[in-house]
């Protein structure tokens, strides 16, 4: 267990280091001179050559690339991610400012996904091949084919513009979260319920369920007590990766609803070429992904002891 955890940590750290190279590359290779951008962000639009040179020295831009990378990486480890080209504010603060809204959004979306996908998946496995199953499967096919930003606009049209029940713009309030969470959850529900269906079908053919029936347990109780851990084990990786994705900010959905999360921060930065902001978004995304992936591995080993036995 400890060895497995250590191995997960080492491979995660090496992936993170490689992603940090990419994030640094975003800033180093981007068109435009960072010194000039930093100066114009602090209000100096036509700097003299001396001022530019001074700023270059201050930002250590005159050093060779490997040194600049090391300097930057050490800064990152200390929480200094550089300043935005647009607002001159530290990008770390800008990111933290947006993070709570995205956390809330991710939690709501994941909860909605789970609460709907779990019964749907189990239900459609129990009624395999019947019309109930076909219906659930059909809905899943439809919901993965619809562009989410378009669905968002249609829901805004119906529930915000016509019925006036919900606000058209997303915000970190109960009413403002309903539409974004529904739109973000829908394709996830489709994929998760398909996974849960397959996992349930696998579990249904196992001997331990037969034993449970033989003990006199009812169908639903047997599934809930005995099959559930196995079903959870087979979806926990997918669910953890979904969480990682959501924590990065569902970029498209946050944009449609003008939701003040980190995904929208990344879009705003990309459209104007504010590279330090994009770099922190990429780094944070990779960090979250690696963390969730490792967590899922651990959870899997805990839910299904056979996994560790196979790995070691």
């Amino acid at each position: 267990m400890v060895a497995a955890a250590l191995r997960t940590f080492v491979s995660g750290a090496s992936v993170f280091a490689l992603v940090s190279l990419f994030a640094f590359g975003l800033m180093a290779l981007a068109p435009g001179d960072p010194a000039r951008m930093a100066l114009s962000a602090s209000g100096l639009d036509t700097p003299t050559p001396e001022e530019v040179a001074a700023k270059r020295a201050a930002l250590k831009l005159d050093q060779p690339l490997p040194m600049r990378y090391l300097n930057w990486f050490v800064g990152v480890m200390r929480g200094n991610f550089g300043s935005s080209y647009r607002t001159a504010k530290p990008v770390y603060d800008m990111y933290l400012e947006r993070l709570p809204a995205t956390l809330l959004f991710a939690a709501c979306t994941l909860a909605a996904t789970f609460v709907i996908a779990l019964p749907c998946g189990i239900f459609s496995a129990l009624y395999r091949g019947k019309w109930q199953d076909a219906w659930v499967q059909g809905m899943a096919v439809f919901s993965t084919a619809v562009p989410n930003f378009w669905l968002a606009l249609i829901l805004i049209l119906i529930f915000a513009a016509t019925l006036n029940w919900l606000p058209a713009l997303g915000s970190a309030t109960p009413a403002g979260l309903v539409l974004p969470a529904i739109v973000a959850a829908l394709p996830n529900i489709a994929t998760q319920s398909r996974l849960i269906r397959a996992a349930t079908l696998d579990a249904l053919s196992e001997d331990y369920l037969l034993t449970a029936y033989a003990k006199g347990l009812g169908r639903y109780r047997a599934i809930l007590r005995h099959a559930m851990p196995n079903i959870m084990a087979s979806v926990c990786t997918a669910l953890a990766l979904e969480l990682a994705y959501l924590l990065t900010g569902s970029i498209v959905i946050e944009t449609v609803f003008a939701y003040p999360g980190v995904g929208r921060l990344a879009v705003e930065a990309a459209l104007i070429g504010d590279m330090p902001v994009l770099a922190i978004c990429v780094l944070a995304a990779a960090g979250v992904y690696i963390f969730c992936n490792g967590l899922a591995d651990m959870a899997l080993a805990w839910l299904d002891p056979r996994v560790t036995a196979r790995k070691l």
Binding site: A244, G249, I251, A270, G273, M275, L278, V282, A285, A286
Partner: peptide, 13 residues
């Protein structure tokens, strides 16, 4: 490790 849309966003930028 980096979601596709974010990566595409960064690369296009």
């Amino acid at each position: 490790a980096v979601p596709g849309v974010l990566l595409a966003l960064a690369l296009t930028a």
